[in-house]
Amino acid sequence: MANPRTAGRPRDPRIEQAALAAVRDLLVEGGYPAVTVAAVADRAGTTKAALYRRWPALPHLIHEAAFPDELAQDLVLGADLATDLAGIVRGTLDTLSSPPGAAALPGLLAEVTTWPDLHAAMMRRFEGVFGALGERLREAVADGEARDDARADDVLRVVIGSVIAGLLLTPGELDDAWVERIAAMLARGLRP
């Protein structure tokens, strides 16, 4: 059976890349309020209609630009649990404090209540991290490094919450020593 023909022209991947780059630039230059569909379309050399064909709403585009898929793919686990936890804390801090991430985060947190599918998209983007950490915690439980009730979602909530609170309250103090302290607290809390 032949593949059914789809209507219209194939999408030009250059438009997606140009739009994502435009959003990152606008976030860094003017923060979340500077990112409008019109500004993105103008900067990317496309139309608002082309953007809406690719993303259901502006927050979805901002989310994809500020937190690209590659971020979740950089997770490398397998060292001792404390080292793995430090890597997760450091990676989360790097992601959320990057110029586009830091500019996008407050607006996206506000948008999640308006766009429930945005929350689902965020969860899908990081499901690889949840899966990898879940597997690592199962190994840690089997090796006696962690309690049997250790859960990846709990660990990631604590890490993400700590990073967001740190960025809000003491952004200048989130250095390597802070990362190690948070990771050590997590490791102690997970011990059997």
Rank of each mutant, 00 (worst) to 15 (best):
V37N: 00
V141L: 08
G131R: 10
I88W: 00
F67Y: 12
G31A: 10
G30V: 06
V40I: 07
D84G: 10
G134R: 03
Q73Y: 08
E135K: 04
F126A: 10
G30A: 08
Y32H: 15
G128E: 08
R151L: 14
E139L: 07
L77R: 12
E145L: 14
T92Y: 00
A72H: 10
P116C: 05
M122K: 09
D69W: 01
A102P: 03
G87E: 07
S97L: 02
L108V: 13
P68E: 05
D84L: 03
V76L: 12
A38W: 00
A82S: 04
L85F: 04
A152M: 09
W115D: 14
L71P: 00
P106N: 07
L51N: 10
R53C: 02
V76T: 13
A50N: 11
G45E: 04
I62K: 02
D148C: 09
D84M: 05
A152D: 13
L61Y: 04
A103C: 10
L105Q: 06
A82G: 02
V141W: 06
T92G: 10
L75W: 11
G78C: 13
A82H: 12
M123S: 15
V89N: 01
V129R: 01
R54C: 10
M122A: 02
P100T: 06
A103S: 11
E64D: 15
A140R: 04
Y52S: 09
R90C: 01
T83W: 01
K48C: 00
H60P: 05
D148M: 11
I88L: 10
A50M: 04
V76I: 06
T92P: 01
L109R: 12
R147G: 11
E64M: 01
A121S: 15
A152R: 13
A120H: 05
A121T: 15
M122V: 10
R136F: 11
R136W: 07
A146N: 09
R125K: 12
A44Q: 09
G45C: 05
G31P: 00
G144F: 06
I88F: 00
R138D: 14
F67L: 07
G87S: 08
P106F: 13
V89Y: 03
E70Y: 05
T47S: 13
L108G: 02
R138L: 08
W55K: 03
L105K: 11
A86N: 07
L77W: 12
V129H: 03
E135P: 02
T36V: 05
M122F: 13
D69T: 12
T95A: 15
A34S: 04
D117P: 01
D84Q: 04
V141H: 10
V89P: 02
R147H: 15
A39T: 13
A49Q: 15
D117T: 15
E111T: 14
A72V: 12
P68C: 07
